[in-house]
């Protein structure tokens, strides 16, 4: 099938790619654009490791066609840190030991980044609900919840 041209803003830079219609966004990001922070866990829309921010919304990039990202604004975990250093959610995951093997972490971070904009001052229950699309096989979630709480405090103070 002939490849088609797509163009989108990825972490603040305009990028172009040639994609097959059946290509999934996560593959374009990882394989064509070489940003391997976004992980592939289940490939079946369950685990959230592939979460990216598409036009201001968290989506599972294993379940979006690259063609559908044409013209969009995309942010991946690589886009969180800036010249001033790590983003507050990244700092908080380090501080609270919000990761063990780290496989789920990119998805957790980019989801937490968006969730805290949707709900800047969440309760613990709201965090668990808001982060429920991301699975972790290591931490038992406790420290992930703490990290999101800590990041919320930092962001509120900023």
């Amino acid at each position: 099938m002939a490849k088609q041209h797509v163009s989108f803003n990825l972490n603040g830079k305009q990028v172009d790619a040639l994609v097959e219609p059946r290509e999934l966004l996560v593959h374009t990001i990882r394989e064509t654009l070489s940003l391997t922070g976004t992980h592939i866990g289940c490939e079946s829309s369950h685990c959230g490791a592939c979460t990216v921010d598409l036009d201001g919304k968290s989506v599972k990039s294993c379940t979006v066609l690259s063609m559908q990202a044409d013209g969009s604004e995309l942010k991946t975990v690589e886009g969180l840190a800036d010249a001033e250093g790590l983003h507050a959610v990244q700092q908080a995951f380090i501080q609270e030991h919000g990761l063990q093997c780290g496989f789920c972490t990119p998805g957790m971070l980019i989801r937490a980044y968006r969730f805290l904009q949707e709900n800047p001052n969440p309760t613990e229950e709201e965090i668990r609900w808001g982060m429920s699309g991301n699975l972790c096989r290591c931490t038992g979630y406790q420290n992930i919840v703490k990290a999101v709480q800590t990041a919320a405090q930092t962001l509120q103070q900023a």
């Binding site: 829309s45 959230g48 979460t51 919304k57 968290s58 989506v59 599972k60 379940t63 979006v64 989801r111 969730f115 609900w129 808001g130 982060m131 429920s132 699309g133």
Partner: peptide, 9 residues
């Protein structure tokens, strides 16, 4: 229904 990411789509 499902989870936050799925509900966005």
């Amino acid at each position: 229904v499902a989870d936050p990411q799925v509900r966005n789509r």
